[in-house]
């Protein structure tokens, strides 16, 4: 078997008494889409927060791309190629969509200690940023202030920002959250397109999307992994049906 791109062992994170991430092991193979599913409050977002370095872990190790990144800072992890999106849209609301992406392009381009030349006229930043906006379908919205974009457009922008950091692997936290059916559909196609290029850890509520996209699925309940396997295996797993899928069927 190929060596995993992301390898997690015994990862723990608790808030007060609540174990939001409880002894999680995870191996993500290069090129796969690995979905994480689980009920609300299962600890999916916390897992991404810990993997991306925005929250420190309490125990366990994280290896990414042959390096131990357990103690690395969030910016350092991003620069190694581990980029994340946010379930609750996190963009720079008071500047244009293009500025948002250009800033991420700038970060990927190296250090930002350039204090003189105007960044907004730098083709090395604007060009790639514009190409990315086009890729996510926001080309004609480039100059709109990000905070004024429609919700779905902000979600697309979120993805463009992530891609602009030139990642090897994406950590996507419910990228379709709050999107309409048509928008979700388009994003689904787009994610499939991205699969050619990136390894992905995908958190998603929409089960149809998950089963359509994922190569493997990990089920998280109360911070703990209760099952990992192919979509077929997960569908057939009685624990999963009881803990999670069953709920949905009942609803």
């Amino acid at each position: 078997m190929t060596e995993p791109l992301l390898a997690v062992r015994g990862l723990c994170k608790s808030f007060g008494g609540i174990a939001a991430t409880d002894n999680v092991d995870l191996d993500i193979t290069p090129g796969e889409i690995h979905a994480i599913i689980g009920p609300n409050g299962a600890g999916k977002t916390t897992l991404i927060n810990v993997l991306s370095g925005l929250l420190p872990s309490d125990a366990g190790t994280i290896h990414f791309d042959h390096a131990n990144i357990t103690r690395a800072s969030a910016p350092a992890r991003c620069r190694r190629g581990l980029a994340r999106s946010f379930q609750i849209t996190s963009i720079f609301r008071n500047v244009s969509a293009l500025d948002n992406v250009a800033l991420a392009v700038q970060s990927a381009a190296g250090h930002s200690f350039r204090l003189w030349r105007p960044a907004r006229r730098d083709p090395a930043l604007r060009g790639p940023a514009r190409a990315l906006l086009e890729r996510v379908g926001l080309a004609d919205r480039a100059t709109v202030m990000a905070g004024n974009l429609a919700h779905g457009e902000q979600r697309q922008l979120e993805i463009a920002i992530v891609l602009a950091t030139r990642p090897k692997m994406l950590l996507l936290d419910e990228p379709m959250a709050g999107m309409g059916i048509e928008e979700s559909e388009r994003l689904l196609h787009f994610l499939r397109e991205l699969k050619e290029q990136y390894t992905m850890l995908l958190i998603e509520h929409d089960m149809d999307a998950v089963f359509a996209l994922a190569d493997r699925i990990t089920v998280l309940v109360y911070g703990r992994v209760i099952a990992t396997g192919t979509p077929q295996e997960i569908r057939a797993n009685p624990d999963v049906r009881r803990a999670y899928l069953g709920d949905e069927a009942a609803a």
Partner: peptide, 8 residues
């Protein structure tokens, strides 16, 4: 967001 796009 700034940290998450790789800027210390």
């Amino acid at each position: 967001r700034m940290q998450a796009i790789g800027v210390p």
